[in-house]
Amino acid sequence: MTREDSLWIRQLIEGNDLAFKMLYDHYSPKVYNTLLSYTKNAEDAEELLQDVFMTVYNTAKTFRADSSVSTWIYRISVNKALDFLRKKNSTKRFGIFSSLYKKDSAEIKYESVDFIHPGVKLENQENARILFRVIDELSEKQKTVFILTQIEDLSQQEVADILQTTRKAVESLLQRAKANLKVALEKHFPERGNSPKNPS
């Protein structure tokens, strides 16, 4: 696939829009699901998906073959998602000065996040809902490593390439992410450990 998508990039640079469609068809599910894990909102994920592929279209010329197309597209996606969260958080911080309601509607802009990933198995839905509630307590890097390895199922080496770091660093970040998530779970859901279903 690497050879094929490198060819698509070359064709895209030459102005072949069909190559762009092929690239989109191949990568959009991966990109969209990654963005969904960050944003926890289908509308925001779709908007960012468009943003990611516009960047791919406009910067294909700058793509260097020293990394794979997959790595490059994932890197763009992660950066866009993190930028989006930073902006969202800063807007929230200044929320005292701005309306909490969307313009022209009574809908609340910052709804409490109770996200259920559309692809999750029915029996795991409650656990996944809890996971997405505590995942925001992680730092940007820990969150990225956790999402890419545990949700997107990428290898540690692939994640290391995306983050331009070493596999060891990714392994360490993942361990810390898991430890921090466990602390957050104990803090926010102490009753889960005492339930008869899950004796702790």
């Binding site: 969209y32 969904l36 990933h117 559309p118 999750v120 809890i130 545990q150 466990k182 450990g193 702790s200």
Partner: peptide, 19 residues
């Protein structure tokens, strides 16, 4: 166990469809 179950709850999840 319960914490590990939550952490691995997204394993095997299907990809959701692109709009």
């Amino acid at each position: 166990n319960w914490k590990d179950e939550i952490l691995s709850s997204m394993k095997g999840a299907e990809r959701s469809e692109v709009p």
